[in-house]
Amino acid sequence: MFQPIMDQILTIARDAWAFLAGLLIVVALLGGLYYVLQGTAGAAFGGSRMTSMAIIGAVGLVILVLFAFLFLPQVGEMLKSFQPKPPF
């Protein structure tokens, strides 16, 4: 009875997932560029703190993206395996 509605919702959710994943990649790339610029500028005029902050930021960004693309699907699989049958 609810299957056609579910199919529609899942199609929308898949599109939204693709959109958000794409947006995350764009933001991460822009962020990476920003940190590279910050690191280079810091290195150019001897701002060691600026450079190290840029390196930490870039590493954090990579970890975040990996977290989003590796951890979230695993959480989804885990929740899928927990998906309960109607308890009534």
């Binding site: 899942l10 959710a13 933001v27």
Partner: peptide
């Protein structure tokens, strides 16, 4: 329950996007 799973994953990626943009 199926829709919950789909939206939980969407919420997760939305929050991660928010974290990365806020971090920047």
């Amino acid at each position: 329950a199926g829709a919950f799973l789909a939206f939980a994953l969407l919420a997760g990626i939305a929050q991660i996007l928010r974290v990365s943009s806020a971090g920047l």
